[in-house]
């Protein structure tokens, strides 16, 4: 357990360092990014020096690195030139939407995917299994933005039963319960589009490992013990089939946060991290981009930490291997 803590701390520092180094490897210098080449060319040397000092660019790289690390620990992620706001403030206003959207959709997708996978693997080769399998493979062919767009057109425009833009109705003045209902209404379409995107992986992984679990000797033993089918299916075979899914979820969260959510958030103009990252790239808003990436990696680290704990609960052999 202690060793694991050290691992996480090392990983954290590597992330911070990379986050510091990578933007500095980009071509051009920060001043030209801020003021543009033309302005810089016309500046006097004194003025340039002054600006350099203002932004701390006169200090050696190592010193700048330590300043960066310390300011991160103080919660200072810099200042967005585009938004004219501190980066942290911007992150805090976007992060919760993404957390709720991706977290909830992953949870729903994993649960329903796992249950479908377990039931389908149990009935391997039967009609119902073949039906679920082929429909899910069909769905998995759609890219995220396509599913999102289809949902938007059908439920948002043609049927007009659900809102499809933003996280809450703008200028509605809702508060309390009404605000919550409005928020949930706006969540439904992006959420289910994402669930549809995530389900196939969860389902296929669980179904496959279910099929191999069912061949294990302890399943035969469980049958001989006279246990009920449900018990064998969920407690013996199902539970052990969740192990690969858990691994996959830990890994997937990173990509899920950025790519999956990114497309869906843009389709529904949902004000989450995806939209934020997308806009920052368009506007060359480097401090925000850097801050967002830091947040995402930190999140992945935290999620992985909990996955690690959950993993040992699921498969006690893991602890043994440490």
């Amino acid at each position: 357990m202690k060793k694991r803590w050290i691992n996480y701390i090392i990983a954290f520092f590597i992330i911070i360092t990379l986050n510091f180094v990578i933007p500095r490897l980009l071509p051009g210098d920060p001043l030209s990014a801020i003021y543009g080449d033309e302005v810089l060319l016309n500046l006097s040397d004194e003025a340039t020096d002054y600006i350099n000092k203002l932004y701390g660019l006169d200090k050696p790289v190592i010193a700048r690195y330590f300043i960066y690390v310390f300011s991160i620990f103080r919660g200072n992620f810099g200042y967005s030139i585009y938004h004219k706001k501190p980066v942290l403030e911007i992150l805090i206003s976007h992060l919760p939407y993404t957390l709720i959207l991706t977290g909830l959709s992953m949870l729903l997708a994993s649960i329903s995917g796992a249950i479908l996978g377990i039931e389908s693997g149990w009935r391997r080769g039967k009609k119902i299994d073949r039906f679920i399998l082929s429909s899910i493979i069909f769905i998995s062919g759609f890219p995220a933005f396509f599913t999102g767009a289809i949902f938007l057109i059908i439920f948002g425009i043609i049927l007009g039963i659900l809102p499809f833009q933003g996280a809450v109705e703008a200028y509605s003045g809702f508060s309390g319960f009404n605000l919550a209902v409005d928020f949930l209404k706006h969540l439904v379409l992006p959420l289910f589009s994402l669930v549809i995107v995530y389900i196939p992986t969860a389902y296929l992984l669980t179904r496959n490992s279910m099929i191999s679990s069912l061949k294990e000797p302890y399943i035969l033993f469980a049958r001989a013990k006279g246990l009920t089918d449900t018990r064998i299916r969920y407690r013996h075979a199902g539970r052990n089939s969740l192990i690969p899914l858990t691994t996959q979820m830990g890994i997937h969260l990173a990509t899920g946060l950025i790519t999956g959510a990114l497309f869906i958030e843009i389709v529904y103009s949902y004000p989450g991290m995806g939209t934020l990252i997308y806009n920052s790239i368009l506007n060359r808003d480097y401090p925000v981009l850097q801050g967002s990436l830091f947040m995402v990696t930190l999140l992945v680290l935290i999620v992985n930490f909990f996955m690690d704990i959950f993993y040992v609960k699921l498969d006690p052999r893991i602890e043994y291997a440490y």
Binding site: P217, A224, R239
Partner: peptide, 15 residues
């Protein structure tokens, strides 16, 4: 009842 042959994984490894 039956005492199964003591092979790998005859007991469920996660319980």
């Amino acid at each position: 009842s039956m005492v199964f042959q003591n092979v790998d994984n005859i007991l469920n490894p996660t319980l």
